[in-house]
Design a protein around this nucleic acid. Structure first.
Length: 260
DNA sequence: CTCGACTCCTGTTAGC
DNA sequence: TGCTAACAGGAGTCGA
């Protein structure tokens, strides 16, 4: 489940191809090309182009090529980034432990002999030229208190569903949502718009602490709650059995004792 | 407009 | 042992 932390790790790896010039594009999986993007278009726009920078908005990784179109990479839940045969992340929660070259859905080959590939067993990711970013909310790693307040203002949806909604806040996925709400002692089922000012502050503080901390530890699955996110798991803080529910369409674990 | 339900994808795993 | 069905979740669509 690449969430924004994994994608940020991918972005740092992708930074190592800045300055490289594209010699070839392998995009044989038509399903993986989104919007109006086609293999032919990718060839025409990217071959001969030089990578000048990398960016990340939420879970979307962007490669810029100067005057050429921007290349957007989405990793879905099982997509990994591999540069020069080296994966940014060896282990990916919910993905496969195996490494099958057949799962390479998209490859950029560079003139210097290096390459960048997206390896995605379940094909939930995708590649798109000039992807729209209009619908993305503020990035969760840098969100301000007022931006977070606006993201939840008047929301009737459950708090967790709001955090997962990329239009409200970009980058948070299922594991980060559970971890942050657990740390902030907030019930994921609460209406998003029901938070008090003090609770807004608490949520913001825990977001801004938790994300960099887990980035340091190596990913979304390194949270304090994570090992307890199994059926019958107990709250690492209180020792009581965690609630397992579906909220926002996702499996949700929370502590019935300290999350309100 | 908002929200929830549904759908897509396929490797892994629990259970018979 | 071998099979089936449930499960995982990011993201888009659709209908109430």
């Amino acid at each position: 489940m690449p969430e924004l932390l994994e994608v940020e790790i991918y972005r740092r790896l992708a930074d190592s191809v800045v300055g490289a010039t594209v010699q070839g594009v392998a995009a044989h999986d038509h399903w993986y090309l989104k919007g109006t993007t086609s293999a032919r278009l990718l060839q025409r726009e990217l071959v001969g182009a030089t990578v000048v920078g990398t960016h990340r908005i939420g879970k979307l990784l962007l490669l810029s090529f100067g005057e050429r179109p921007v290349l957007g990479l989405r990793f879905g839940m099982t997509g990994r980034l591999i540069v020069r045969g080296t994966a940014a992340i060896d282990y990916l929660e919910y993905s496969s432990a195996r490494d099958e070259p057949a799962w390479d859905r998209f490859v950029l080959r560079f003139a210097d002999g290096t390459d960048l590939r997206m390896r995605d067993p379940r094909r939930l990711g995708g590649v798109e030229l000039n992807p729209s970013t209009d619908h993305l909310g503020p990035d969760a790693l840098t969100v301000t208190p007022s931006q977070l307040r606006m993201a939840l203002l008047g929301a009737a949806a459950p708090l967790k569903a709001c955090l997962l909604d990329q239009r409200r806040l970009a980058g948070v996925g299922n594991l980060l949502a559970d971890e942050t709400l657990w740390r902030a002692a907030l019930d994921p089922a609460r209406r998003g718009g029901s938070l008090t000012l003090a609770e807004h502050r608490r949520l913001h503080r825990h977001l801004r602490i938790t994300l960099p901390e887990l980035l340091d530890r190596g990913g979304s699955h390194m949270g304090d709650l994570h090992h307890a996110r199994v059926r019958g798991g107990r709250c690492p803080r209180d020792g009581v059995e965690l609630l397992r529910r579906t909220i926002g369409g996702r499996t949700t674990y929370s502590c019935p004792r300290h999350q309100h």
